[in-house]
């Protein structure tokens, strides 16, 4: 089975210049991989750096050393050293991300927020909208909200817009940062179903799930992030 994501000996620290330049080691020697069709869940207590690790894989955080190897367009490339243009093209075509919070864009309707990853890849606008509406319907977002910008939505509604946006593409790798955090049981079940479909389609998933129920349903493997954390050795 293919392994679209390999993280190898990655280390990360923050230098806080505003606090006399103190250096905060976040993690070191991070190594794991995610196979196609597999859902790997990052485990460990909160504050250990699970979200940070997800952001490193997404290219949002820089890493100090190590490799993040991704299969993109038939080639293997190291996201840790890739230039911005390459990272953007990886995100557009290969690497999806469902963040915990929706960063809303003013005045853009929910349905267009969801459709955007498709139109950015050149899908016809009407077709992308249709797909987006189907996603929103499946996630039980009230139809009357579709044409409104999500800035004023509740947390759960925003989260569903976010999920729809993240799941709409056929990205080979999907990063999930607590996608079910503010959802009710019914919608959690929908998301679990969607994750199952992605797995069946051969997508490699890497996620953080605090909800034990969801985690047990979707996780094939749990990677314990505290193993990479300096706090563990300090403790």
């Amino acid at each position: 089975m293919a392994t679209p994501l390999v993280v190898s000996e990655v280390a990360k620290s923050f230098t806080m210049h505003l606090r006399d330049g103190i250096r905060l080691p976040v993690m070191s020697n991070v190594s794991f991989s995610v196979k196609a069709g597999e859902c790997v869940v990052l485990g460990g207590p909160s504050g250990i750096g699970k979200s940070s690790l997800l952001k490193m894989v997404y290219g949002n955080y820089a890493v100090d050393s190590g490799q993040i190897l991704i299969e993109h367009g038939g080639r293997l490339l190291d996201l840790a050293v890739a230039d911005p243009r390459t990272i953007l093209s990886v995100r557009r075509a290969t690497l999806g991300y469902v963040s915990q919070f929706l960063r809303t864009v003013p005045r853009v309707a929910a349905v267009d927020v969801v459709a955007e990853p498709l139109t950015a890849r050149g899908v016809d606008a009407a077709e992308a909208r249709e797909t987006a509406e189907a996603m929103l319907a499946r996630l039980n977002l009230p139809r009357e909200l579709w044409q409104l910008p999500p800035a004023t939505f509740s947390g759960g509604e925003q989260q569903r817009v976010n999920i729809a946006r993240g799941f709409i593409t056929d990205h080979r790798i999907l990063l999930l940062d607590e996608p079910t955090a503010s959802l009710d049981a019914k919608n959690r079940a929908v998301v679990v179903g969607m994750i199952e479909e992605k797995k069946a389609a051969g997508v490699a998933l890497l996620g953080i799930f605090h909800d034990e129920d969801v985690r047990e349903k979707v996780a094939d493997r749990i990677v314990d992030v505290s193993a990479f954390s300096p706090r563990k050795s300090a403790a």
């Binding site: 230098t15 330049g21 290219g59 955080y61 820089a62």
Partner: peptide
């Protein structure tokens, strides 16, 4: 990358 500079700024 814009989100990297804003979310993980390196320089003081």
């Amino acid at each position: 990358l814009t989100d990297r500079v804003l979310d993980d700024p390196r320089e003081a």
